[in-house]
Design a protein around this nucleic acid. Structure first.
Lengths: 357, 357
DNA sequence: TCCCTGCGGGAAAGGGCTTTCTCTGCGGTA
DNA sequence: TACCGCAGAGAAAGCCCTTTCCCGCAGGGA
């Protein structure tokens, strides 16, 4: 691999001069030398060693991002927003997938610190886990103490800058909508219990139901992985236990799509027999059939804001931006069926009783 | 930011010893010193500077990946495969999105070279563009000359290791299926003309039709962006021009989903009135309604193979692995309707004529 | 008792770049 | 004519690590 001194030697100049030409330094260099250097660069296919550069330069430019999984549409959208701002400012992004593993998250914080990123963005739900939260905060504090900037998206644990989707309000919206449509037997397929996103959304939902004199008992909640298969499976369990359900709210759209699949497999018409509500409004939501009624979160905007926060000037007080959720009515939520399926519910019930046989 | 010498000083040892403890060097260090160093590391929250390490160490470990867009399910799946192998081998991945911009692709090759990656993987269609191809090959050759390994996924232009999905065979499969179902008026919504993936798939399709004594005239092809909206829009244009179409094949699943949306909006029943075929079999394909009939490509496996090629021992001869395509029959392709819609076709035609008014 | 061996530790040389500082030589002023 | 100032180029000092090389010392064999 050609080095700067190779280039300098070939051009018959000092490394200092070569460096100045290549980086467009403010220090003037005569045209003749400049051209000799440029020619040498081209001939040798020289590319500066990024690590040496970062070591020599003081200022750090890259930004580290830790998400659960970029290929999950939720994070893909957020990342799009992050990218947009970063690209505008000529920043390189280092994106790491934690796959919802807290230990991996901790590791990535170290790794990114080691890579001298100028800022760190953690996106995705926090965990109900004291020990982990403390450890993470320690690490983040250490990083911030050395001048690093940190912002989180959608997690409470960090005390600094944050952009927070209003998960609770979103849950509330979902609950109110279903109540308005007359539903009483509402089931929930939720993400992992340990995620704060799950509990926040659930809390909002429960609040809405309670205000309407309805309930959300634990037996009508099923926890599963926050993805399509988790949703499909949780829906099946929910239906087996409670065949008279007239609505199921999924705590994210991927799960909702899984729910739709299970419902279709069981021959239940959506929304005529049973309503489904999603959460997030990821792009595919409008393309499933029937199109998904869901709670929209401004995902791209969340990314944009977080990156702006972290790249902008530091504020004395930590800034917390709460971004509103919004209900998007499409075709999966309808009024509660007049003849509830409770009468026909004897068949599934029989099946449950049948486990004794 | 604490440095190694800070740690050494605090522990009362030399930087050499500190380094040995931290990296678990083979050289023995007494337990007492080891503990002093470890304590200092913890107290100072020391994290080694990755750039300095990479500079000091000779061996390069990270792998660079250039894709069109990780959040596109096609690349998300491939990336999953790449990740799997990379993680197994303790390699860090640097993933860059070119957003199908050739210039950006060139830039990223430089950038990754500068970051001293041990290998480079380019995934995604090549371009019908001589000048670009030549430039890219020059850059790759320069990189390989310095010991870098390169593999491409799904592009012809590179002369080295490659894993190639059999796009042409896939197109052929799609064509044969449709012919078998009796379709004659087949439209195609294709990705950008400049992509080799587009032309390969098209070529296979055309071959199948020709063999069956059918044709694929240019007027039955519409080129658009390789995404959902591109597919929706191309389908609209196609239908406007040719209302008697009984089948449309989309050159990827995202476009197929767009096609489904347009068809639904126009009240055309799939597959009763019109059949739709996709390509790729991305995960969502089975969850749209009706479930998408499509040509499956082993996306994850493609990633696995490419990474294995590049991380494995070099072969004297470039290795090209062609991975087969496979037809997945679901619910969007059916037999050609008996009463062709040609009779009802007058309405759209009238609409087109109406542009004169 | 002396010498050799080997272990544990430190000194120092890079690795490739940026940047400050220094030096040379030229044009311009007194 | 002597001197000052400055433009343009190079020397060299880092940046933070790893790793080779070397040294001192303790223990074992002759």
């Amino acid at each position: 691999m050609a080095t700067l001194s190779d280039v300098a030697r070939r051009a018959g100049v000092s490394p200092a001069t070569a460096s100045r030409v290549i980086n467009g330094s403010s220090k003037p260099v005569t045209d003749e030398l400049r051209e000799r250097v440029l020619a040498a660069v081209a001939e040798l296919q020289y590319v500066p060693n990024a690590h040496a550069q970062l070591l020599a330069r003081s200022h750090r430019s890259a930004v580290g991002v830790i998400v659960h999984d970029v290929s999950d549409p939720y994070f893909a959208e957020i990342t799009r927003g992050l990218q947009r701002v970063a690209t505008d400012q000529g920043r390189l992004l280092m994106i790491c997938n934690s796959y919802r593993d807290p230990d991996r998250e901790l590791e990535y914080v170290e790794l990114l610190r080691g890579h001298q990123v100028a800022a760190l963005i953690l996106a995705g739900s926090g965990y109900h886990d004291e020990a982990f939260t403390r450890q993470l905060n320690e690490k983040l504090a250490a990083y911030e103490a050395t001048g690093g900037r940190v912002a989180v998206i959608g997690r409470h644990e960090h005390s600094g800058d944050a952009v927070m989707p209003d998960n609770r309000a979103g849950g509330y919206l979902a609950g109110r909508e279903l109540c308005g449509l007359g539903h009483r037997a509402i089931g929930v397929i939720a993400g992992p219990r340990i995620l704060t996103t799950t509990t926040d959304r659930l809390a909002g939902l429960r609040q809405a139901l309670t205000e309407q004199g309805r309930e959300l008992p634990e037996r009508r909640i099923r926890y599963a992985e926050f993805d399509r298969d988790g949703g499909a499976e949780a829906t099946a369990r929910l239906l087996d236990a409670d065949p008279e359900l007239t609505a199921v709210v999924a705590l994210n759209d991927s799960m909702a799509i899984g729910a739709l699949a299970t419902l279709r497999a069981r021959g239940l018409a959506v929304p005529q027999q049973i309503s489904v509500l999603g959460f997030d409004d990821m792009p595919i939501a409008r393309d499933v059939t029937p199109a998904l009624t869901t709670v929209r979160l401004p995902l791209v905007h969340m990314g944009v804001r977080a990156m702006s926060l972290v790249l902008g000037v530091g504020a004395p007080t930590p800034r917390v931006e709460v971004l509103p959720a919004e209900l998007v009515r499409r075709d999966t939520a309808g009024p509660v069926p007049h003849s509830t399926r409770a009468t026909a519910g004897s068949a599934p019930r029989a099946r449950r009783g049948g486990t004794a046989s």
